[in-house]
């Protein structure tokens, strides 16, 4: 708790800096693509968001494994705090992919293998969030969610493989290569900075959310303690 309080402001500042510089490079410095023109700038949001969608799921799975094996209460909280952020990044990836696809492919959605896999990932996130919140007892929800997250880890490669395979079978008539054969350094830098900025942002908000969850736990304990002696009942009622 104290460590997070010390790290948090630095995380926030670093996030603001990298995202600021990254945005500047992405919008003003990076050259337009010779094929895709200015639309290529969507990549600087889309690709880091896709990375984050997977990275956050990795964190969620790791936290779930720790929660199940060592029963560390903090791991449960970390997983639950991360999931909505992961869902947010996945949604961002999907929508920006669609916005990029419309000018490039001529439709808002193609059943491209990558887009499809990300869509499935989005549903896995939603399932996790729904499951965690579906129980009256928070610990049961956390435990069930952790198991689901690990089941998802086993399944994601299988789903990815199936979707890739399915996609090569039903190859759409004209698919443009994303990004072109080589990525120039002037594009790589903003991409890299945006990715780091997103990661730092995730860390910052994750820390805030974990702290919130810890405080919520404390509140619960305090309220339980207050409820015990009879004469305090009215006081606890008014406080809640």
């Amino acid at each position: 708790m104290r460590l997070s309080a010390a790290v948090l402001p630095w995380c926030a500042i670093a996030t603001a800096l990298t995202l600021g510089v990254g945005l500047y490079l992405a919008l003003f410095v990076a050259p337009p693509d010779y094929q895709q023109g200015e639309a290529v700038r969507i990549m600087f949001i889309h690709v880091p968001a896709a990375w984050m969608a997977m990275f956050v799921y990795g964190n969620l799975a790791l936290a779930s494994a720790v929660a199940l094996i060592w029963r560390h209460p903090l791991a449960d909280l970390a997983g639950q705090a991360a999931a909505p952020l992961g869902a947010g990044f996945t949604l961002l990836c999907l929508v920006t992919g669609s916005l990029w696809g419309q000018p490039m492919w001529g439709t808002w959605w193609v059943w491209d293998a990558r887009l499809t896999s990300v869509l499935v990932l989005f549903f896995l996130y939603l399932g996790y969030i729904a499951l965690v919140n579906a129980f009256d007892e928070p610990t049961r929800g956390a435990r069930a969610g952790a198991i689901l997250a690990l089941v998802g880890v086993v399944n994601i490669p299988i789903i990815k493989f199936s979707v890739d395979w399915w996609n090569t079978l039903h190859q759409p008539a004209s698919i443009m290569r994303m990004g072109g054969p080589t990525i120039d350094a002037s594009m790589l830098w903003p991409l890299f900075l945006m990715a780091i900025g997103f990661t730092l942002y995730f860390l910052t908000v994750l820390l805030i959310r974990i702290r919130t969850a810890i405080i919520a736990r404390k509140l619960q304990v305090l309220r339980m303690a207050e409820l015990e002696p009879d004469e305090d009942f009215a006081g606890a009622r008014s406080a809640s």
Partner: peptide
């Protein structure tokens, strides 16, 4: 370059989502 209606919503949504999640948290 004529792609405004695709580029700006993308960046706009990114901003709204990131700020929104931060504010909510």
């Amino acid at each position: 370059g004529g792609y405004a209606r695709f580029v700006w919503p993308a960046f706009g949504l990114a901003g709204v989502l990131l700020v929104g999640m931060l504010v909510q948290s």
